[in-house]
Design a protein around this nucleic acid. Structure first.
Lengths: 200, 200, 200, 200
DNA sequence: GATGAATGAGGGTTCATTCAT
DNA sequence: TATGAATGAACCCTCATTCAT
């Protein structure tokens, strides 16, 4: 029973992996279901035993991978000492490190998040909302502890921060930057967001 | 002769307008060429008198609209008094105002820029590069005049700024914010990018 | 396994049959793929599981049917007693009998061989070459045994003979001649080619 | 008035020339009307002032060129001394010389005569019938004067002869044979048709 | 008469999805 | 459960023909 479940979830995972690889390389609309199947080592029809259709596969992949990212982020942040600003800086680093640790996922997220998700009928993308909420809470925490300015709309600036991170992540991924370079650049971005561009 | 030229460029413009409307609403891959044609009030085949194929239409639309945006931006910035920081703040505002002044264009740019352009074979998107260069030069100017910190990589932070602006523009567009709200939010984002999130 | 193979080759054969019928009736360029599909009793898309495209279907049909014709011809000729002249006469008869035995194939070959094949990109039509070679060898054999004149270029006259046969086959097919008539006319043509038009 | 007529017929001729060139090179179905127009140096629409449609253009081209061929043939034959057999031999030569004298026309006739004409709705191709009649009359004359065997169906053997000539003409054209070679080969073919393949 | 931009029906091909095995 | 052959709706693009200038 547990064996059967495991087997099932293995195959599901293989399909998601195949889809991630394919979507990262060619994009959702340019990827054929049959390519995903062959990447996953299953038959075309098998995909429809695990997912309702191609859209559902995309959405499931988002959910699954965002959950993984969020879990990882929460763990790392909760293990951390320090105030909101330090945590914010660390979050920037973790975000950017995806370019090194899982470039395919990075490419998938940065490229597909907006467009595909937008046009896949009525999908709200709750996990992406969760990710934003983490950013928001950090900034709110900073405001409440007096570490961060409170004359800005938290939802607005958190989105702006996400946009900055997302764009930088895309560049880091495409340029295939190494770990040190990624950390260094993450630090610069964090510095800009925290302290601003003006000279002190 | 001039008449014929005008007519021709009018029709081309109508097709681009139709494509913009259609792409903004449904995305490149979900838009049929026939929908663009009907939106533009021309026959399907007419589109192929002005553009090589659907991809070329997308690329041409990018080129055309980015050029318009860049021209407008350059004019406004060159008319301006003040240093690099003031100009930077103004650029943020101009960027955000697109949400009000041309929401369809805003939606098109924010949503299609990354994905479609990425998977349309070998397109380098030079106009987008031009836009980034304006941001870069502003920051470089700020660094040279001592107004901005020079311990950051200009290319990196300019991209981060663009990411922030792009994401905010998308939100402003989708939320159908009014002109005052847009200006207010633009000011906040400019404030964050210039002075940072930390409390002073 | 053998079952699946059989099924597959059955369906391929059904498509070729449908194509033959359709091409014979309306010609290659006036036949829609969907007509072939409906003639074959398969879906449009199925055709593309067995053939690369419409051109490939045409070429495959040539190959397949010419091979069948050649095999049949070789068998009949090798079973035969008699010298090169007798064999040549028999070959003329076999060629003409196609008008009775398989009028669709006769129409297809006589009408499509030149044009379609010529303009289907870079197709060399090797099977047609094989057919010509049989004619050539017969004539060469006749020359070597002294039964046929050797003051003519074998390649040239074999082509001329083929042209004569081809044209006669077309007429016989279109006139829907019966078996006896076909044999009688074949004998006349053989007579002309062997003995010439002059009175003896 | 006569001037206007001349001008009109000049343009018509230019279009026919363009069509001949285009059809010879790419075949009827692969030739676009616009290609013919550009070859002829006229606008696309102009073609429809002179011909009902593309089919009509093809048919008119046949008529026109066959008429030219027939006129030429009749003149040459009527100027000739000698009996039916000599005339027949000469006709073979004249036919083959087309490969040198007008290769485009040769290619057009040999390739398009059967197929295109067959599928262009209900066209009877009367000029081609006229050409065959010349062959027929020669053979009939030969039979009546006792120079040719009369145990063969004239219509049948004339078609066979045409088939042989047509095929040989195609080969000569494609191989770009020179005038001497063409005459030599024509003589061989005439020899075969007149005296037969058997050794004497 | 001549033009050539515009038309739009038509067709080859793709590919997400189904279902018999 | 897994397969993969079969399906057929959908869509991009072509090109013969028209017609306003």
């Amino acid at each position: 029973m547990a064996d059967a479940d495991k087997k099932r979830s293995d195959k599901r995972e293989r399909i998601l992996d195949g889809a991630l690889k394919a979507f990262a390389k060619k994009g959702f609309y340019n990827t054929k279901v049959s390519e995903i199947a062959s990447e996953a080592g299953v038959a075309d029809g098998t995909i429809y035993l695990y997912f309702k259709n191609k859209d559902d596969l995309l959405i499931s992949l988002f959910e699954d991978r965002m959950e993984w990212i969020i879990d990882r982020l929460k763990t790392e942040l909760s293990d951390m000492e320090g105030g909101a600003v330090a945590k914010f800086r660390h979050m920037v680093t973790i975000h950017c490190r995806l370019a090194v640790e899982n470039p395919e996922l990075a490419e998938f997220i940065t490229v597909e998040l907006r467009q595909s998700a937008k046009f896949v009928k009525e999908y709200e993308n709750p996990k992406f909302g969760d990710y934003l909420k983490i950013l928001q809470s950090l900034i709110e925490e900073g405001q409440q502890t007096g570490a961060m300015r409170d004359d800005v709309d938290v939802r607005l600036v958190s989105r702006a921060c996400f946009g900055a991170l997302d764009e930088v992540l895309l560049q880091l991924t495409l340029s295939q930057a190494g770990p040190e370079e990624v950390d260094a650049k993450a630090a610069q971005i964090a510095g800009m967001l925290v302290d601003g561009l003006v000279a002190k």
